[in-house]
């Protein structure tokens, strides 16, 4: 590990002060728990001149719920989110995803905003500075070739946050603060399918809160990982499924760990109005297999991650859909 770069830390106590700090330090980075950023900095990835710690800003804290749904501050820790009774009761995929991030010490420090803005990961990227240099660096940082797909034009590093798919199936929106004021947009629009530029945040912008609409559908989250106790997802799947009697009346499936962005599965409308049986699960599984794009970014084979994503989606939808078989 390298020494940390020589940065200053600012700890603003208001959104306005954080935006001003962002303007004052154009080479700075916003940070909260730092459980991912600090490791990357120690690997010599990036050298911000300042870290702007957002955790002391009141608007980014706390979980509020009411008739309008639920509002979760970006600086809420993953441990707080996982332990919140109303989250577990109404948005179970969100609580399960928060509880599946890292180990207890990571969840005590890591935050909602940090997990949503997590850097993408790749076995050619999350390496020490000397390792990457010996390997001619890579497209994502300091190099010009993607070692995963050398003939391709883009970075294939995988988005590996657990929280995003769980929030996507609950139709979450995010509030973003920036130099032009506060804006609100669907969470799905925060992401782009490019491992080197997967976050659609302008310079100086940061997440303030996540909004979940009321009347959530039953949901669940599951992930496959190399180390069961603590690891990023090889593939992570969230499913929200609403039933009308024996048939599926609403279905949202979202994935992480397989692409450069977390995304909502398309084409689920074709699965509505039917009962969840083996043939239905098979169709869902094929839909997942078609849309995931795992590449050789982890030590485990891409084909395994494709199949495990499909299997997890079928298993979760089967349980939520009350499959008899």
């Amino acid at each position: 590990m390298e020494l940390l770069p020589d940065f200053r830390v600012a700890t603003p106590v208001s959104i306005a002060a954080a935006l001003a700090a962002g303007k004052r330090h154009p080479g700075g980075r916003f940070v909260a728990g730092g459980t991912d950023l600090m490791v990357n900095l120690r690997h010599g990835i990036g050298a911000p001149t300042a870290l702007i710690d957002l955790r002391a800003i009141p608007e980014l804290r706390g979980i509020a719920s009411g008739t309008g749904g639920m509002s979760i501050g970006a600086a809420v820790t993953l441990a707080e989110l996982a332990a919140h009774p109303a989250v577990a009761a109404h948005y179970p995929a969100v609580a399960a995803a928060a509880a599946a991030v890292g180990a207890p010490a990571h969840r005590a420090a890591g935050t909602v905003g940090g997990n949503l803005c997590l850097d993408t990961r790749c076995m050619f990227y999350n390496r020490s500075a000397w390792w990457r240099e010996a390997n001619s660096f890579c497209l994502k940082h300091e190099g010009d070739t993607c070692h995963v797909a050398p003939t391709g034009k883009r970075c294939h590093a995988a988005f590996s946050g657990d929280l995003a798919p769980a929030l996507l199936v609950h139709d979450a929106a995010v509030e973003i603060a920036g130099p032009d004021g506060l804006r609100r947009q669907p969470l799905a629009d925060l992401y782009a399918e490019d491992g080197a530029a997967h976050l659609r945040l302008a310079p100086g912008e940061f997440l303030v809160r996540v909004a979940l609409p009321p009347d959530p559908w039953p949901s669940a989250y599951a992930k496959a990982r190399a180390r069961g106790a603590i690891d990023f997802p090889l593939a992570g799947v969230a499913v929200a499924l609403r039933r009308d009697g024996d048939t599926v009346a609403g279905l949202r499936v979202a994935l992480t760990g397989t692409n450069s962005r977390p995304f909502l599965l398309e084409g689920t409308a074709a699965l509505l109005g039917a009962a969840v049986d083996a043939a239905w699960r098979d169709r869902l599984g094929k839909l997942v297999q078609k849309q995931v794009l795992p590449m050789r970014t982890t030590l485990l084979a891409a084909q395994y991650r494709r199949r495990v994503a499909s299997a997890l989606a079928q298993r979760l939808a089967g349980a939520l859909g009350g499959a008899a078989d």
Partner: peptide, 27 residues
């Protein structure tokens, strides 16, 4: 590991386990 993966540097901060290798002293 010096990178938040092994837990050898676990300390308690206000009674909660945290990783000293990922925590800034000024925090």
């Amino acid at each position: 590991c010096d990178g938040g993966e092994c837990g050898a540097c676990t300390v308690l901060i206000d009674g909660t386990p945290r990783l000293a290798c990922l925590t800034r002293t000024q925090e």
